[in-house]
Amino acid sequence: MDYPTTLMPRITIIDWRTSPQGDPDSTIERHIIGDAAEVRRFLCETDADLTEEICASDALIVWHNMPLTAQGISRLKQCRAIIRNGVGFDSVDVAAAREHGIAVCNVPDYGTEEVADHAIALTMALCRQILPLDAEAKKLGWLIKVEPRLRRLSTLTFGIVGLGRIGTATALRAKGLGFRVIFHDPYLANGADKALGISRVRTLDELLRQSDVLSVHCPLNAETHHLIAERELALLKPSSFVVNTARGAIIKKTAILTALREGCLAGAGLDVIENEPLRTEDEAATPNLIATCHAAFCSVESKIEMRSTSARIARAAVTGEPLENVVNGVS
């Protein structure tokens, strides 16, 4: 498609070619941005796909799974802000952006309810073995082979890694269902446990030893990459379930799939998985695995909120207004 030459600022939306999440007309973004800038949308797989038109943009809105590396950022000619259309910003080299004076922003609050709900949904599906029971019922039979995995929630300990917005929302939901709720978060000030009526443990190892359900809610960074690997999974009870609605690479993929195959875990519910999506039929056939499509954030309402916030930040970037949710210290 040919675009007219314009002196207006340019805001470019970069959607992921493998699984586009926005609409071709960028209806929500255009409504918010109005006549403050020209809005364009491109489908890319990696930043090797960035065209000269994209690199001449004044602001970028980037969907998840479209990585923006130091090499790609170095090609941006006049970009003022990169807005990650979501909570996580691990797909953007924030240090490289800072070196080039480009603000990186995210949308930290749009999907709090949805992700917490999804974590609980995966937990309930595991604790009540919904999928295996569904499959058995559809065989027109009633042999309940998974009875040893069916659990009473009030007897279980729900362990949370990371008590931020989503971790807190998940904790409240789990508590309401009758779980004993514990958490580990070395960066959280004292007192959150008392405010929420849950228990704090000081080490990850202790959290793992106590948890019947482990739910991951921390960001992905150098410290948390493979935070849960072979050693950590071995600390869980063989009857434990693992839920991840945060970032795939927090849990080492080969470690958790092996643990499931060898019966070292009772099950896992993974909305996100390292090097997603699942790559082989063997991975997909892993026993006692529920996998969803990095969709925990999704709802009609959450996507409207997310896209509206991203568009508002992009508009502020090209009109010289203060930016929200800057994560790399560039004002």
Rank of each mutant, 00 (worst) to 15 (best):
P287W: 07
A284V: 03
R247Q: 10
E283F: 03
P238T: 02
V242G: 10
L289R: 12
N288A: 13
L278H: 09
S239M: 09
E281S: 15
K253E: 01
K253Y: 06
A249M: 06
K252V: 00
N275E: 13
A259R: 05
L265Q: 07
T292A: 12
E262S: 04
P238D: 04
I290Y: 06
L260K: 10
D271W: 02
A246C: 00
L260D: 06
V272W: 06
V243C: 14
A249Q: 11
A291I: 09
K237V: 01
P287K: 14
E274L: 00
E276Y: 15
R279L: 13
G263V: 06
L235F: 02
L289W: 08
I273C: 15
E276H: 04
T254K: 15
L265V: 09
A259V: 02
E281P: 06
I290S: 02
I256Q: 10
I290Q: 07
R279C: 04
L257W: 10
T254V: 13
T245I: 03
D282C: 11
G263L: 11
E262A: 15
A249Y: 07
K253L: 02
C264Y: 14
I250R: 11
T286A: 08
A268C: 02
E274M: 05
L278V: 03
K237R: 15
I273L: 09
A291H: 14
G269Y: 09
T292H: 05
T258D: 15
